[in-house]
């Protein structure tokens, strides 16, 4: 079942960057790609539970700040060791300048 929640204002996330968003003990990462699309993944790296919000977005890749693991934040797919487990991703929509994420059914 879809569970849309308000995450942040669209302008809170800079182009080619990400921010951290916490909700009910869960932590998420909200991305804005170079082409101004928004994406959302689980907030912690699947390797050692580090906050990805401290990492660097380059194109469509997020690089974990601790151990260099990389993921494609659009699909959650790991792109570089030591990351080897996929990141959960969540549907995103932007309405009237506000970013909403659907935390009901991650994939």
């Amino acid at each position: 079942m879809a569970t849309w929640i308000e995450a942040c204002a669209a302008e809170d996330v800079e182009n080619e960057d990400l921010i951290r968003f916490d909700h009910n003990e869960q932590t998420f990462a909200i991305y804005r790609s170079p082409d101004d699309e928004y994406y959302c993944t689980a907030g912690l790296c699947t390797h050692e539970e580090v906050h990805l919000s401290d990492g660097l977005v380059m194109g469509h890749i997020i690089e974990c700040p601790m151990h260099n693991g990389q993921f494609d934040y659009r699909t959650g797919a790991p792109r570089r060791s030591p990351a080897c487990i996929k990141l959960k991703i969540y549907p995103v929509k932007v309405e009237n300048g506000t970013v909403f994420i659907d935390i009901g059914e991650p994939s």
Partner: peptide, 10 residues
């Protein structure tokens, strides 16, 4: 400052 580190490494 992990964010600064991410950028410096890049």
């Amino acid at each position: 400052d992990p964010k600064a580190f991410s950028i410096a490494r890049r």
